[in-house]
Design a protein around this nucleic acid. Structure first.
Length: 163
DNA sequence: CGCAAGATTATT
DNA sequence: ATAATCTTGCGA
């Protein structure tokens, strides 16, 4: 949960294998997901298969298929045995004039697929840079879910439209 | 083994 | 409002 707020305002670097090309994107929207205390978390109602990585150690990438259509990028947040992850819901690629909002759109834009599941969030494929400038961060309830809607675990850069 | 449902998005 | 379609949980 602290990680979710910490990631907002940082740069995520994605390197394309082979090409040597990397793309930097400002993380502008995240959501934190917990364990059995969080009814919306995958760890709460299907803690098997891919989602089992949420119980693993921090810094690993959890990629799942939302409704079978779109990959969604998460970063495992809690220690071994403690379920928890941060969903990247929106980024602002350096080259783009406008932010890319929505977990499915974000991963599609960055070229992230289910095969990236289990990668290190700070390794050859991904890298999270230090915060470059301070942003005012807004904390709201989560969106796009049907359970646990009341938990205020969504973090966004407040002045999105003014940059 | 078959079916429903979910942290989504684009299209009718 | 619906289709597209991955993964798990549950019932037969």
């Amino acid at each position: 949960m602290e990680l979710a707020e910490d990631l907002v305002g940082r740069f995520l670097v994605v390197r394309e294998p082979g090409t040597g090309i990397s793309e930097r994107a400002l993380i502008v929207e995240t959501e934190a997901y917990g364990g059995s205390n969080d009814p919306a978390s995958h760890a709460a109602f299907k803690p098997k298969g891919r989602a089992a990585i949420m119980f693993s150690h921090p810094g690993l990438v959890y990629v799942y298929a939302a409704y079978g259509m779109y990959p969604c990028l998460n970063i495992v947040a809690e220690d071994d045995g403690v379920p928890g992850a941060v969903l990247i819901r929106g980024v602002w690629p350096e080259a783009a004039p406008k932010p890319v909002l929505g977990p499915g759109r974000t991963t599609r834009h960055l070229g992230i697929t289910l095969t990236d599941h289990g990668q290190w969030a700070d390794g050859p494929r991904f890298c999270v840079s230090a915060r470059r400038e301070s942003h005012s961060i807004e904390r709201t309830t989560r969106v796009g879910i049907r359970r646990g809607v009341d938990l205020p675990w969504r973090f966004v850069v407040a002045d999105l439209s003014s940059r």
